[in-house]
Nucleic acid binder design. Sequence first.
DNA 1: GATGTAAGCTTACATCGTAAGTCAAACAGC
DNA 2: GCTGTTTGACTTACGATGTAAGCTTACATC
Lengths: 217, 217
Amino acid sequence: MTPRRGEGLSRERILDAAIELAELEGLTGLSMRRLAARLGVEAMSLYNHVANKGDLLDGLASRVFESISLPDPGLPWDERIRLLTGSAYTAFRAQPVIVRALVSQQANPRSSGSLRVIDAMLGALLDAGLTEQDAVRRYRGLLGLVFGSVLVDTTDPGSASERSEPIDDWFRRNITADALPNLHRTLPALFDVGCRVKFTHELELLIDGLRATAQND
Amino acid sequence: MTPRRGEGLSRERILDAAIELAELEGLTGLSMRRLAARLGVEAMSLYNHVANKGDLLDGLASRVFESISLPDPGLPWDERIRLLTGSAYTAFRAQPVIVRALVSQQANPRSSGSLRVIDAMLGALLDAGLTEQDAVRRYRGLLGLVFGSVLVDTTDPGSASERSEPIDDWFRRNITADALPNLHRTLPALFDVGCRVKFTHELELLIDGLRATAQND
DNA sequence: GATGTAAGCTTACATCGTAAGTCAAACAGC
DNA sequence: GCTGTTTGACTTACGATGTAAGCTTACATC
């Protein structure tokens, strides 16, 4: 080993650098060439450790899935859902780029670590007394809540405006009190980073709904 | 007009073709060159009607927003939310590609038609008795539900697998009854297109929660 | 006709993912 | 020690992308 420089590439080192780069520059900023440059290496060298860019993104996504901790199977189902979904939310919220890669189908993790999470989730739902069909539906609903919350929360209105004028100016020009009164009234709150989705609150509502569905069977 | 062929390009004709192409080939399949080819024209000709690709995507997103019908402002707030969110869900569900463009920040619609929807949504939430901060939070929550549902629903496990073996095979090999019992049990339902998120059901739960929040103030 | 302008076309460039080939260093068997 | 073989890097090259810059054509107005 220690062939030429960089004291040895490795899948782990590549994934580390890829997460950094993606966090820093977004999904589009993460290119094989730029990633390689960041590691002091040529682009094609990465392909010794990673099948292709898709595989790279899969690896990143798998890491996030694997950072989700599984609750004790002995706990009641609703508590398991709370812990699991909360842990998933925290993990994905810390890496919104990965969520974007997942929903845009650039990544689809096929690691046992990812499946493990899905299995635990489905297990809790089945234990709640749902049918297989309902369990899948509700699993999707919960995942949708997690992904949706992360995406909406991390799409700050200011950032996407690099290509034209700053969005605040545009907003303040176009949102007048008489044409769009409600938007105008909530404008300060819209730009307030404190006004994010209250994830746990929405989660409890869905769990209540789950309980009701299960009892109606 | 009628310069050479195609009997006159126009922003509308371009947007029409772009939606078709995006639906057919996905977001990555929608390129300026391919879009132009579809219209019997060179890529650069599109730039006479569209500022750049971002503007094109903004136009597509605006169209979807503008297809969302606003409820009668005289209706009670909860009914307005039901109609508005339902209409938004239907509109976006019909064009999942646009949702992906939105959440990946490739599109950010700045048309009055889009703002109109947001304003109506915030109006209903404020009428429910929420503070500005809570209204923004709940608006984000509802939007997250819509987007999340669409995304999770339209990420069918089979499609993302072009780059390696078919995912069913991989699933059936890797999901064994003893290692991942719950996943194994729900496998048929996971591949069943009937098992989508029950959007209206989840929506009612969030509306119930809204009512509770408002009364606690 | 001459002129101005709008809407096409052509060429060109930087950047992307990655296939194919080269080459030097590290290790295995003798 | 020497000698394959393997590994992991580098180099070159190809087709695709978004789009800047310039050219050309067709029509409107005078």
